[in-house]
Design a protein around this nucleic acid. Sequence first.
DNA 1: TTACCTGCAAAGAGTTTGCAGGTAG
DNA 2: CTACCTGCAAACTCTTTGCAGGTAA
Lengths: 138, 138
Amino acid sequence: MNNNQIFVKKLRSSGLRPTKQRLHICKVLFDRKDTFHFTINDLADLVQRQLNKKISLATIYNTVHAFKKKGYLKEISINSDKNYFDTNISNHHHFFNEGTNELIDLKDKDVGRIKIKKNIPGKKIKFIEVIVKIANNN
Amino acid sequence: MNNNQIFVKKLRSSGLRPTKQRLHICKVLFDRKDTFHFTINDLADLVQRQLNKKISLATIYNTVHAFKKKGYLKEISINSDKNYFDTNISNHHHFFNEGTNELIDLKDKDVGRIKIKKNIPGKKIKFIEVIVKIANNN
DNA sequence: TTACCTGCAAAGAGTTTGCAGGTAG
DNA sequence: CTACCTGCAAACTCTTTGCAGGTAA
């Protein structure tokens, strides 16, 4: 299956029609070796630069949100200023460089087992998110 | 030292004059037994309900930000929708109930030591934030 | 008296929505 | 052909800023 077919499948399974604009969004998101951390703005800029043509924010937003809902993208809570997404949907955590606003993946094995010793009756743990804020060494 | 004197001291050490409005903000924030998790909106509502009078958002914002800068309040990154603050400035983590948007403190001892096995050259770890997302048990 | 503060309103940033023309199926 | 999509612009929400009158020191 080539990339384009994969993208079409992702879009369809997210309830979206595979339009030209959305296939370009997919290309920017998923046609890469490494994890991609981005804000909506980053993504819009990249897609538009690649296409050399304006793409509506409405399209970017609805595509990203559909992918997030379907689980093809993860949202990362860093701070309230910027809303980050991550194409790495495996279980992992992050370094966040506050100087540069850069996110770096921490593989699951890079973080020791996290033990939560408190229990809330009637609730179960859904997901643990760890953000390791880093700064220059001086 | 009574509460009012403590509040005046907090304000002054944050570079703010102790005005009537700010003393009320202090009362809502710090005159309580338990940790208080809030958004700017929560705080504005509470202060205004107590005073039965409108308080400018400008005042709320500049006071909260000055306290945060001075370290009397902590900011918590949960998601991009809401910006939470915490009157508990000790080292601790949080449960976040996604159904109710409620934050619950995890004492430091409730979370096992977190071991980060990866190092970024030239950077040091400033601070680790853990959010444990919880949901109903069913 | 002077510098800071308050309240209001307007301005910004990021996100969402409504609509009319366009496109996939 | 119909339902969905796109692009645009307007609307919304949250936060910040500017200003004129008011208050702390």
